[in-house]
């Protein structure tokens, strides 16, 4: 058992190393794209047509006006500019890192002889695994490799923090945590967090890209090689609503578990308050996407604030706020 746990730790550090390489390569890729200022004609169409692209932002990739997106060659598909060598290398590193990460998580679970998400360290380990996994998996559906630097950077940072600050040895689960609802509730929270993370990345990219389309700002030229703000917004929306469904489920499953463990399904404990706040923020996000004047940038900000609250909930609320969740049950 001890051996497995330390093996897991070795795998975590290796994964972090490989992810760091992936992060560097992804960043070099972005830098290279900036240097090469691709398809100037396209860029000028993009910049010269802020009006059309605002309308297209409204179309969410659905209606007539979507076709105008097609006028911006790079706007349909991030790989249009061609995957650079850096990007291919980076992606390969990301996959290798993920396999190590997976091994780390599995061995941790085996060492503990239960699901590997019963404390903050394990939650961080699994959540980043699922986040990276989702990022890698999403490629099968849409090319979002331009998020690579963000996701790998975020993952390395998170893994570093949880391993250094939150690491705990494998201990048996206390009675308050012995419940199938732990498995379900936390697993779904992990999934939601992963989707929100990618959604927030896309929303950030959307804001940057929008700014470039409107203001023709210098710098960050790589933004010309990512899809248009409207496409990014629609991608972000589709990722975020999946996260939102998972979060809704997290909230309900948490309530069911709280009823079993503490005798009431809802008691406005600090952790419950924040779960509620996050849920309401994302409900606001979904509404914003359907409210005139709130599509586009404002809804993107809401998604980013929502994800920031998720991180806040996991770190600050867990560590510094008083509540039932800070010790477990009896």
């Amino acid at each position: 058992m001890e051996n497995l746990a330390s093996l897991s730790l070795v795998a975590v550090y290796s994964a972090m190393g490989v992810y760091t390489l992936a992060f560097i390569a992804f960043t070099l890729d972005l830098a290279k794209r900036s240097a090469e200022a691709p398809v100037p004609a396209a860029a000028s169409v993009a910049a010269g047509a802020p009006q059309t692209s605002t309308v297209a932002a409204g179309s969410g990739g659905t209606a007539v006006l979507d076709r105008e997106d097609a006028l911006l060659p790079e706007a349909r598909d991030g790989s249009r500019g061609g995957a650079t060598v850096y990007q291919r290398v980076a992606f390969a590193f990301a996959i290798i890192g993920w396999v190590l990460h997976l091994a780390a998580t599995l061995t941790r679970g085996l060492a503990a002889d239960r699901v590997p998400w019963a404390n903050m360290f394990e939650f961080g380990l699994t959540a980043t695994l699922v986040g990276m996994g989702t990022f890698l998996g999403v490629q099968l559906w849409k090319d979002v490799r331009y998020l690579g630097a963000y996701i790998t950077g975020f993952t390395v940072l998170s893994l570093g923090i949880v391993t250094v600050n939150f690491y705990v040895d494998v201990v048996p689960t206390p009675p308050a945590l012995q419940s199938a609802w732990l498995v379900i509730h936390v697993l779904v929270a992990v999934l939601a967090t992963a989707f929100f993370a990618i959604g927030a990345g896309l929303s950030t990219m959307q804001l940057l890209r929008h700014q470039r389309e409107v203001r023709k700002t210098a710098g960050l030229k790589f933004l010309d090689t990512v899809p248009g703000a409207s496409t990014l917004e629609s991608l972000a929306y589709r990722i975020n609503v999946v996260g939102f469904v998972f979060w809704t489920f997290t909230l309900v499953a948490g309530a069911i578990w709280a009823e079993r463990a503490w005798g009431r399904y809802w008691g406005w404990d600090t952790k419950e308050v924040w779960t509620f706040i996050i849920w309401v923020l994302f409900a606001g996000y979904v509404h914003a996407r359907a409210t005139r004047g709130w599509r586009g940038n404002r809804s993107a900000w809401l998604a980013i604030i929502g994800f920031s609250s998720v991180i806040f909930n996991y770190t600050i609320v867990n560590l510094y706020f008083e509540g039932l969740h800070s010790y477990s049950g009896l």
Partner: peptide, 27 residues
């Protein structure tokens, strides 16, 4: 829609003190 949205956001903000200040009901 805008009213619903603003009220939702207000609700989120209004819940924050409930986590900063101990509550009679839970603590």
């Amino acid at each position: 829609m805008r009213t619903a949205l603003v009220l939702l956001l207000l609700l989120a903000v209004a819940a924050i003190p409930g986590s900063l200040v101990p509550q009679r009901s839970s603590n």
